[in-house]
Each structure stands twice: as C-alpha cells, then as structure tokens.
Write a protein that binds this DNA or RNA. Structure first.
Lengths: 106, 106
DNA sequence: ATCTATATCTTGCATTACAAGATACCAAAT
DNA sequence: ATTTGGTATCTTGTAATGCAAGATATAGAT
C-alpha cells in the first residue's frame, strides 16, 4: 500500500480548491501542491487530470504569454466546477470523520 | 469524480484498524464499515482485499464454525500488519493536514 | 423439501496516479 | 549564431484497486 494510492480522487478536489482561490497554470499547480506538503507531483499526473476536468466542464482555460518560456494555459473554475468543489468538501469531511472513527477505536 | 474513488488505499488502513481492535471475519467487517459511515460496502471489495493482505502477510486467518451459516474466516493482524497500521496512521495524518491546507485557503 | 439469512470467492471492468519520454518556447551566456 | 538551462505542455503505457455481478455453500426455520 503506497502513499500515492491514498490520493485517488482526492487530488481532484485539492486542485479545484487551488484554482478556486486564483487562476493557475499546470506547472504552477504542481509547485503549489508540493508547497502544501504533497511530495513530488508528476506532470504526468497533473496534465491529464486538467484535461479530464476540462472535458467534464469543471474548468476552462485560456492561453497567456510568458516572459520565461512557452505560453501558459491558465485554468479557472466553471460554475459546475464550483459546485463540484462544494460537493468534494462535503465528501472529504465525511471521509475524515469515518476514517477517524475507525482509527480512534483502536 | 465519484465518492468511492476517494477510498483508494484508505480502506486498507481502516480494515487494519478494525482488525487490530478485535479479530473479525469478512462479512462482519463489511457491516462494521457501514456502521462507521462508509456506505454500502461490497463483498467484491472486502474479500479480494483480505486475500491480498494475507498474501502480503499483514493478516492471518483461522476458520471457525458458525451457528448461523458456513464457517467464518477470522482475521488477526500479524506484527507486520501492526507496523503497517502505524505507518498508515502517519500517512493519513499527513494527508489530512495537506488536504485541509488546500481547502482552507479558499 | 424449500426458503431465508449468512458467508466466501471469482471474473471482468473502469478509474486513475504515475513514470518516462517527447515536444517546444524563451532568455541569457558563450 | 549557437548552445544551454529553465519553463511549460502533452502522450503513451503500466499498475493498482474499488466494485458490480454472479457463483457457491452452509445452517436453521417453515
């Protein structure tokens, strides 16, 4: 059981929360997640996830020039994304309490 | 993003915690998890998981007669399982604080 | 005998985190 | 001009795993 397996379905919510705060581009997102304590986030995780989320219409993107390299694709939340974030928060709260209930018994 | 996806790698830890408390059999485990708030736990999840955990020598099992049906396979933690439980708890604490850090920003 | 509740297991599928690598762009140094 | 290094995105393939669906079996009650 690896640490990474625990993230399934959870990074999505974290990403929604980060984008909600301020529009970000993929590379920046990976850095932020590391700042928040997640270790070494692969772009092989981030980019496919953002593409999937855009397909699901949770986020939308716009290209903007950069002075330090190629164009950046900035993401913002759609209304559907905002709703999904709220639902994620509710699920996360419930998960936390369920798991902690299991753990505190022992 | 379904609710169930969030469980990946987390049920393992919950199961370790429950078995640590008292030896249990699979069917009982599914009921307990439901009591703890997880909704409708499939045996198609529980049994393969217990078998996998036994292969990894985290748990061991013994068959015991039942008055209400076929024999029950009771599981207990091995020393390796106890160690894994402690490691899971550490990972879970870290995950909680990371995710909450993301969420509280918004 | 039949039915119901209990109990375990197997097969196959969908999801998804990630490693590894490919591609490309810009600025500054050589 | 060319090279180098940092920035930035995307694709392919793989492994892990929760779960639905169904098969199998036992014990007690009707």
């Amino acid at each position: 059981m690896s640490s990474t397996q625990m993230l399934k379905g959870i990074i999505d919510g974290c990403i929604l929360a980060i984008i909600h705060e301020k529009e970000v581009y993929g590379y920046e997102l990976a850095e932020k997640l590391e700042q928040y304590g997640f270790d070494s986030f692969s772009e092989g995780t981030i980019y496919p996830l953002l593409i999937r989320m855009q397909k699901e219409e949770l986020v939308s993107s716009t290209l903007k020039k950069s002075t330090a390299g190629p164009k950046r694709k900035y993401y913002t939340l759609t209304q559907k994304g905002e709703d999904e974030l709220q639902q994620f928060i509710a699920r996360w709260e419930k998960l936390q309490s369920n798991v902690n209930l299991c753990l505190r018994k022992q």
